[in-house]
């Protein structure tokens, strides 16, 4: 008795005519999706990098501004101090002189 089953009478199917075209279409679509995904990744990366750059710039900008504010604040306090300390010495009159001050100068 023959060991194997005889499949010679079994129907043998042939792929439909449009199957290959569908396969190509799906592969192309998948490739396009991959490309757009890659593009999205790159654009999101560049967006993240620019956000980081702007954030960094703002951070360092604020820091340098606060230093400048501090400097100007210290400058103005120095000015006030020197003005107050100069009161009555005549220097103050010369720097903040008005018409009346010039007529009636105070101090030496």
């Amino acid at each position: 008795m023959r060991e194997e089953i005889d499949f010679s009478k079994a129907s043998r199917l042939v792929p439909r005519k449009d199957s290959w075209d569908k396969v190509v279409m799906r592969i192309n679509k998948a490739n396009e999706q991959k490309e757009s995904l890659l593009l999205n990744k790159f654009s999101s990366l560049s967006a993240a990098a620019s956000i980081l750059f702007v954030a960094g710039a703002m951070f360092f900008g604020f820091n340098s501004n606060s230093t400048a504010t501090q400097t100007s604040a210290s400058d103005s306090s120095f000015e006030y101090f020197s003005w107050y300390s100069g009161l009555g010495s005549g220097n103050a009159v010369s720097s903040f002189s008005t018409a009346i001050d010039n007529y009636f100068p105070t101090g030496g």
Binding site: L13, P15, K22, V23, I27
Partner: peptide, 10 residues
């Protein structure tokens, strides 16, 4: 079966 054929080749 036809779907599987296409899935395999894709």
């Amino acid at each position: 079966a036809e779907d599987i054929l296409m899935d395999v080749f894709v």
